[in-house]
Design a protein around this nucleic acid. Structure first.
Lengths: 196, 196
DNA sequence: GCACACTCCTAACGATCGTTAGGTAGGACA
DNA sequence: TGTCCTACCTAACGATCGTTAGGAGTGTGC
């Protein structure tokens, strides 16, 4: 059963910040507890294990990305690969900037999950990347994108997108909207047919 | 004084692999020792502390990137921003693919350094990124690149480049040369003047 | 033959790790 | 008023952490 109480969500929130700032392995259960002004052992009234905290953060973030991609694809005409890729990029930027700590934990700390979960997250990441890749393949097939290696291009774009989580901070020079606009532009142009 | 003996370099090598695979914080001194078939305490005949191992890996990798960028810039005409950016991208890919473990440790684990070192690495990373940014600024100024935010564009390209370290494995489908060619192409086109 | 590095050993240190056991205060509900 | 539930506490568990102390074997240069 998944705990969904208010205190449980607070735990995920402070844990996201700490895991983002110091990494999962370098963050102790007592660190998380201290941020909530309780004792380390008291956390276990809400949580079965430290890994469960990581899991709930990662699982939640993965679902956010998946649902955002679902909406992005549903909202665009399936015929236009350019529009679809733009929508995927924009959706990704929105999820990352809406919760950069959680997103960066998802991107960088999921390898600390133990085995059935770790593999499952890997599969979900592969499936998510495949949406970008197949969209690029579609665009190449109809001549909307230049002929290139779709797997490399998808990885290029996705790693750039995931990097946002590591440097974005709310209230900085760049608003999420501005970042989304720029990243859509950069991604689409990287696949453009015209030469330099 | 910096140890440079053969055994010392072996330590950096196996530590790079372990730090890459599991992260610095989740890798114990005894893990490193086990990979060398010695006892954990025996490592301290070669190393002053665990952090010193991380430091020597990070410092070495940083120097590799800096020197490669030096050569890339020295080899190209300073007048042509497009050519210079291409050389920077190519050099970066070469360094990453030549030693992906060390590179990925540099990219993802430097935050575990303690304070004077951590800040110093941050400064060096900023300086490195500035080379990309100013090259893009130059290109925009002369109309070789489209008018865009050079800082965003530099970050976009650099995070994509750094991502290579997380997925590249020697002997895989893609050779370093092929990756370099594709990444140069993707980076340059992302800044191209022509529309989609 | 002797000194000296170099490399590794066993044993142990105090600290901290994730986690469990058992208990208590306060509010909700009968 | 009595009972349960939630949220926290203190105390402690065995394991593991980075690191130090002190010693031993092996090979090289004089």
């Amino acid at each position: 059963m998944i705990e969904t109480g208010a205190r449980r969500r607070e735990i995920d929130e402070v844990a996201s910040e700490l895991f983002h700032a110091n990494g999962y392995a370098a963050t102790s259960v007592r660190d998380i507890a201290r941020a909530l002004d309780i004792q380390g052992a008291s956390l276990y009234a809400h949580v079965a294990s430290k890994e469960d905290v990581l899991w709930s953060i990662v699982d939640w973030a993965a679902a956010e990305f998946e649902q955002a991609a679902d909406r992005a694809i549903a909202d665009t005409s399936t015929a236009d690969a350019v529009e679809r890729l733009a929508a995927l990029v924009e959706a990704h930027v929105e999820v990352v900037t809406a919760d950069p700590e959680r997103s960066s934990v998802f991107v960088t700390e999921w390898r600390h999950l133990s085995e059935p979960r770790r593999a499952a997250v890997g599969d979900r990441r592969d499936a998510y990347e495949a949406r970008f890749r197949t969209t690029i393949e579609d665009g190449v097939a109809v001549g909307a994108f230049r002929a290139t290696d779709p797997a490399i291009a998808a990885t290029f774009i996705l790693t750039a997108l995931n990097g946002i989580a590591t440097w974005f901070r709310a209230g900085g020079r760049l608003t999420p909207d501005r970042i989304a606009d720029h990243y859509v532009e950069l991604a689409l142009r990287s696949l453009s047919e015209d030469h330099r």
